[in-house]
Design a protein around this nucleic acid. Sequence first.
DNA 1: GATACCGGTATACTTTAGGAAAGCGGTATA
DNA 2: TATACCGCTTTCCTAAAGTATACCGGTATC
Lengths: 129, 129
Amino acid sequence: MEFTEQDKRKCPEHLSTGECTKQLLPVKDALDILSGKWKIQIIISLTFGKKRFKQIQREIPGLTPKMLSKELKELEINELASRQVYDTSPVTVEYELTPYGKTLKPLIGELHKWGTKHRKRVIASSGRG
Amino acid sequence: MEFTEQDKRKCPEHLSTGECTKQLLPVKDALDILSGKWKIQIIISLTFGKKRFKQIQREIPGLTPKMLSKELKELEINELASRQVYDTSPVTVEYELTPYGKTLKPLIGELHKWGTKHRKRVIASSGRG
DNA sequence: GATACCGGTATACTTTAGGAAAGCGGTATA
DNA sequence: TATACCGCTTTCCTAAAGTATACCGGTATC
């Protein structure tokens, strides 16, 4: 049996491949920055205002200092969060979303929106099942 | 030195913690489904229409059959994609986004939007640095 | 002097994600 | 008979992500 003609009708590979790869890169960039178990949780925590190290850790259950430290460094490198050291003793350190970091809000909003709907859907269907 | 009063002014923990954890769960749900190296790429590929197994693999460079198979199964379980088997021989299998899967489009749109801006920003600053 | 807070680091470990390569039954093609 | 396509699965392995635990200098509290 011959599939070639069928393929062209059902799966217009020649039309999609170029567009597809063009879409891929920026989406991957965004996910690189947001993925990982803790990063978004930290960002969300910071959307509610300045926070100190231990304070973030207390807000996010299970987060170890090693992970928090590592993630905060990455957020700093990507200029999404800033670190302020106050010359008190012992030192006070505050983390804050940068204006650039705040540009993530619509995206997080969409994640929240879709996640909420999905949650309802899953709960509803598990109730039935 | 006393930090307690300062803390209350700068870091209103009592105001944010409840809200923060409320935001966390749905966002984590959404990321659970989208994170991983291939899932979004596969979803994007499917937004351009029905695709066959090998066709998806060809469109996404580096994607092994093992990974594709695994990710497609997860997409099916989450009802984001559907699998259609045609009784030809050898068998023809087509994957397609479900209507529910298509509800991800705005979210992917935001990922794309932010990713694109970020990309420009990074390229611009690496040019300066 | 013991304890507890702060903002982390260091070390060692486990777990997970992902990659490489081969192979399966079935069919068609040379 | 050999090769190549389809839609996968299996096995083995590495690298990265994440966890557990202890610790550091400094200060304040009991």
